[in-house]
């Protein structure tokens, strides 16, 4: 960017590139900082001149205040290139005349900054490096026994004993697995909403939504006493949320009613398990599902809250009948045209 040969401070009599008819009054805005670094690059200067010339066509009077401002402003931008030159040892003939560049003074001075202050002191100066203490790699250890030579040098960090011929397959932990997906529940599915189940063994039943589990599955209940639908998980895809809502108040699901709670124990049907237990692995024994006491207690707990909420309503009788009845489509009824 800059010529290799460092110039001394630019002469003030030198006319700018634009060509001026009047005698030059001010000082050149661009000057050599030494070591071949110019204060403004060629492009910067081009733009600056343009700005100056675009006004009235004549060069305005030099305003020292403006100059001061501009120097302070620009000083930030010149910091980086100058600093960069620190690291390069530059050999110049007039190294004595380039004292260390003091940024503080450089920013503070306005008009004659380029004349006597832009001297480089750092040229030829070398910062002695502090010698780093080397960390020991080996340790000399004493060894017992007559024929063992007495000492042995041992590496502090042991070398690897295993050199695999093949690279390991890296685990891809960053992959978005289904379990990490963000679950979004339809807006109308708020706990207390009466839903119509569309799939599963209780399809067609109208049930009450009790909560949403972290897996994104809805937790619904009949209540069991009303339509014999137990506490159950179901995907929101298989549910129509109606506009009918039961006010559950500040009812909160017990903490232990989570996804793990509702997971089915499929182990007993696995062959490996059967083999261990000495059963016939091909026999498909049908086990009848019997709800545990825990389940019964939880069912009761949740249903009590729901039934109490229904009981508070004026239309409790009708609503109970509504929950008891099953949903179905009549002739000339189309679910996409109906309101729920």
């Amino acid at each position: 960017m800059a010529p290799a040969q460092p110039k001394a401070a630019a002469k003030p009599s030198e006319p700018p590139a634009g060509g001026v008819k009047k005698a030059k009054v001010g000082k050149p805005r661009n000057y050599d900082l030494g070591c071949g670094v110019v204060r403004f690059s060629k492009t910067k200067m081009f733009h600056k001149k343009n700005v100056y010339n675009s006004g009235s066509g004549t060069v305005p009077d030099f305003d020292p205040a403006y100059a001061l401002d501009s120097v302070i402003l620009v000083s930030c931008s010149i910091l980086t290139p100058v600093q960069f030159s620190f690291s390069i040892p530059v050999q110049t003939s007039n190294s004595d005349s380039c004292p260390a560049f003091n940024f503080n003074t450089a920013t503070g001075y306005g008009s004659n900054l380029y004349e006597d202050k832009a001297k480089y002191k750092f040229i030829g100066k070398k910062n002695p490096k502090a010698p780093k203490a080397k960390k020991p790699v080996v340790v000399v250890k004493k060894i017992g026994g007559d024929n063992n030579g007495g000492t042995r040098t041992v590496l502090i960090k042991k070398r690897r004993a295993f050199y695999p011929t093949q690279d390991k397959v890296p685990k891809r932990s960053h992959h978005k697995t289904f379990s990490k997906h963000v679950r979004r529940i339809r807006k109308n599915l708020i706990p207390g909403t009466v839903c119509i189940l569309l799939a599963g063994r209780h399809a067609g039943k109208r049930v009450v939504l009790v909560g949403v589990l972290p897996s994104g599955l809805l937790l619904v209940t009949g209540p069991f006493a009303v339509n014999s639908c137990p506490l159950r998980r179901i995907s929101q895809r298989y549910v129509i949320g109606t506009s009918t809502r039961v006010d559950l108040g500040d009812f909160k699901l017990p903490e232990h009613l989570n996804d793990a709670y509702f997971k089915k124990n499929k182990k007993s049907t696995k062959r490996s398990v059967k083999r261990k237990q000495g059963e016939d692995i091909f026999a498909s024994k049908k086990e009848k599902y019997v709800p545990s006491e825990q389940r019964k207690a939880d069912q009761k707990l949740v249903d009590e809250a729901v039934i109490a909420a229904i009981g508070k309503r004026d239309d409790k009788k009708v609503l109970r009948g509504y929950l008891r009845s099953a949903f179905g489509l009549r002739s000339s009824q189309f679910p996409h045209r109906m309101r729920f």
Binding site: V318, L319, M338
Partner: peptide
């Protein structure tokens, strides 16, 4: 009729 909800239809 078109504005009826599911609960209204039941009623």
């Amino acid at each position: 009729r078109a504005q009826m909800t599911d609960y209204d239809r039941f009623k």
